[in-house]
Write a protein that binds this DNA or RNA. Structure first.
Lengths: 111, 111
DNA sequence: AGGACAGTAAACCAGATGGTTGAATATGCC
DNA sequence: GGCATATTCAACCATCTGGTTTACTGTCCT
């Protein structure tokens, strides 16, 4: 599976990974700090971060023993363009951003 | 896995399913006709269509012995709003639509 | 009724996915 | 040096996924 759209969409298909992206939206974070809110081993989070990285959704830069994770919205744009091709949706207002933060982080999403 | 975003993104993660959506973009189609361009059994396509249907990306209506499949962009909108929350991408122009048809159908996508 | 066509169901298979644990590898600090 | 911290590696496991084939259920046509 090497198609960038395959990578992007299947990376986004996992709720843990979407939650990680939501965390990184606020700030760049170290792997350990990304893992902190999740009831899951550090190794599992590390794998998720690798998947996000291969999909181009985040970048990781090692400084010392800490690896910093940073949101990289380029791949999202690619996928977003693909999706918009279908719907001719009205231009999305940025209120969606706040609504997103409220709905996704607790649990369910997209009303 | 019952979260609508999970369903939408994982449905979109498969290139066969994206190609099916691209077919349905042009016209509503019967299951057999959807399957025709793919080197894959009818049963496999039927499963793909069920996945797309559960994700809300298509609807299926049985008329006689033929089941008509129709693009249903509502779920895409939900996922698209989610994605746009990240990037603050510029409003997508509809040229993307044509570029999409050229790039996705042959093979690779999204340069 | 009987046959052809449209689609699904069921059983199966190989490989991917998402998680675990425990050991290993760096790196920073005293 | 020696220890704690940050992260990954490796092996393993259960479950999901995407495909197959064969058999089945409807529906249409004559």
């Amino acid at each position: 599976m090497t198609d960038p759209l395959d990578l992007a969409f299947s990376a986004l298909a996992d709720p843990t990974r979407r939650a990680i992206l939501a965390l990184l939206l606020e700030d760049d974070m170290a792997v350990t700090d990304v893992a902190e809110p999740f009831a899951m081993s550090l190794a599992a989070i590390s794998k998720h971060l690798n998947i996000l990285s291969r999909a181009g959704l985040i970048s990781q830069e090692r400084r010392g023993r800490v690896k910093w994770c940073k949101l990289e919205p380029g791949a999202l744009k690619c996928a977003s363009v693909w999706m918009q091709s279908f719907g001719q949706f009205e231009p999305v207002n940025l209120d969606a951003f706040e609504k997103f933060l409220e709905t996704e982080l607790p649990g369910e999403a997209c009303d």
